[in-house]
């Protein structure tokens, strides 16, 4: 059975993050929060725009890394969850199916309407996103156009999914398995492109 992306999106978009009596949402082996997207965007944009150009790349790298670690740990929690077992696992026949399924869940949960468009197993992946909340950063700039690509979260999480697929056994400490891949954004809706494009490649040893 091939991955049925639309069914996964329809089913997984109904999963709700409900807090316990302590106001916490323990789920998928992590503590989940459900905050306004403009909070995350505003912090990212202001941080990046507040530093000198020579430092900007380092700040952007740390924003991507934040998503990379988040995606690694939460991604593992997702693909080992009862929700995944119920909806996605029956469709999975290969590691590549897991990746396609993970991006369907990624879409269902509102991170990005993103899909793999090219995959060389174990080596390289290209992801395109028709929509993602980070693209809304453009609204803070004149002409609704950001001066650069700013899809840090999509970039980091996409690389994390490749870590989980091809980076070896999951390591909860992140000492092994994490950062075996890295991503770069080559197109961005926020800067006027028709989609976001993210190229994920194996990191140098």
């Amino acid at each position: 059975m091939a991955i049925q992306r639309e069914k996964i999106i329809a089913d997984m978009s109904k999963v709700k993050a409900a807090a316990n009596p302590d106001g916490l949402i323990p789920a998928f082996n992590v503590l989940v929060n459900q905050l306004p997207a403009d909070f995350w965007n505003e912090f990212s944009r202001t941080m990046v725009d507040s530093v000198e150009p020579g430092v900007r790349e380092a700040i952007e790298g740390l924003l991507v890394n934040a998503a990379h670690e988040c995606g690694y740990h939460t991604g593992y929690g997702i693909i080992t969850s009862k929700e995944w077992d119920a909806v996605v696992k029956p469709m999975v026949r290969s590691v590549e199916d897991i990746l396609h399924g993970a991006f369907a869940v990624f879409t269902a949960w509102g991170w990005a309407d993103a899909e793999i468009v090219d995959l060389v197993p174990g080596q390289r992946m290209v992801v395109r996103a028709r929509d993602y909340y980070e693209a809304d950063i453009a609204q803070a700039y004149p002409g609704n156009r950001a001066p650069r690509c700013m899809g840090y979260m999509v970039c980091g999480v996409s690389a994390a999914f490749m870590d989980l697929a091809y980076g070896g056994e999951y390591d909860p400490t992140g000492q092994r398995g994490l950062y075996t891949f890295h991503g770069r954004q080559t197109k961005g809706i926020e800067r006027g492109d028709e989609c976001g494009e993210f190229v994920i490649e194996r990191s140098e040893a």
């Binding site: 993050a17 998928f28 992590v30 503590l31 989940v32 929060n33 459900q34 905050l35 306004p36 997207a37 403009d38 995350w40 912090f43 740390l62 890394n65 934040a66 998503a67 670690e69 988040c70 740990h73 939460t74 929690g77 949960w109 509102g110 991170w111 909340y133 809304d136």
Partner: peptide, 15 residues
């Protein structure tokens, strides 16, 4: 009415 997104404690801690 507000766009929200789920993230985890790793993301909040790293930010």
């Amino acid at each position: 009415g507000h766009l929200v997104v789920m993230h985890c404690h790793h993301y909040a801690s790293l930010f």
